[in-house]
């Protein structure tokens, strides 16, 4: 079993309240310009059957992190024990290569500090046995965090694709999703692991 930890975002339960975003930003004292977690909103259809759904995203703690590959000073590390990708701002020289290589736009350059920063999965809290601040603050239970392989047992649906989310085969992100009950549904057969995942991972999950 993979030890990779990651977030799961249930778009049915997400109400777009941005408590995850605010709790993260407030806990780490981020200025308004920098948000490690962002709630995106998508809308489709026409009144009165229109659908507005929300997608809460932070760092995807990829199995194959593109940010790390581009970093000339090794400011990034991927932890062996849980796969969290951690950025060290004291090592960062502010070259911003990572902001270009990450397909998800996760690392954000802070012009005031002259360095990049990003979600580190609240690794200090995780080490203490706590949940990341965003997960702890979620009002509806839409956001979860844990071993990627265990989402299947705990979630209604585990999907690797989401609106506006780039092809997961590029960096094999650890974030998983459940889609809204109304509106389009994912393919009947949904793979839990990204296409290039290790061959011993469970292959398929029945979508609902």
């Amino acid at each position: 079993m993979s030890e990779q930890k990651g977030f799961h975002a249930d778009m049915e339960k997400c109400i777009g309240c941005k408590c995850c975003e605010a709790a993260c930003q407030d806990f780490y004292r981020m200025p308004p310009e920098i948000r490690w977690r962002k709630v995106r909103s998508f809308e489709m259809g026409e009144f009165p059957t229109a659908l507005r759904v929300h997608l809460s995203l932070a760092c995807n703690h990829c199995e194959d992190p593109a940010c790390m590959k581009g970093c000339p000073v090794e400011a990034y590390t991927k932890r062996g024990k849980d796969g969290l990708v951690i950025h060290d701002p004291t090592a960062c020289i502010g070259c911003q290569y990572c902001t270009w290589t990450c397909p998800y736009g996760v690392p954000q350059f802070d012009p005031v500090q002259g360095v990049v920063s990003k979600c580190n999965g609240c690794y200090q809290r995780v080490d203490e046995g706590l949940m990341p601040r965003c997960v702890e603050s979620c009002l509806t239970g839409a956001l979860s965090f844990g071993n990627v392989d265990l989402h299947a047992a705990e979630q209604r649906q585990v999907v690797t694709e989401a609106p506006g989310f780039p092809d997961p085969s590029i960096t094999r992100p650890s974030t998983r999703f459940a889609w809204p009950l109304k509106g389009p549904q994912p393919d009947h057969q949904v793979s839990i692991a990204p296409p290039a995942a290790d061959p011993h991972a469970p292959a398929q999950k029945e979508g609902k």
């Binding site: 489709m44 259809g45 026409e46 059957t49 229109a50 659908l51 694709e161 989401a162 609106p163 506006g164 989310f165 889609w179 109304k182 509106g183 389009p184 549904q185 994912p186 393919d187």
Partner: peptide, 11 residues
């Protein structure tokens, strides 16, 4: 599919 949209368009 209340919003009249398929999976591909959703993504």
């Amino acid at each position: 599919m209340s919003a009249g949209m398929d999976r591909r368009s959703f993504l």
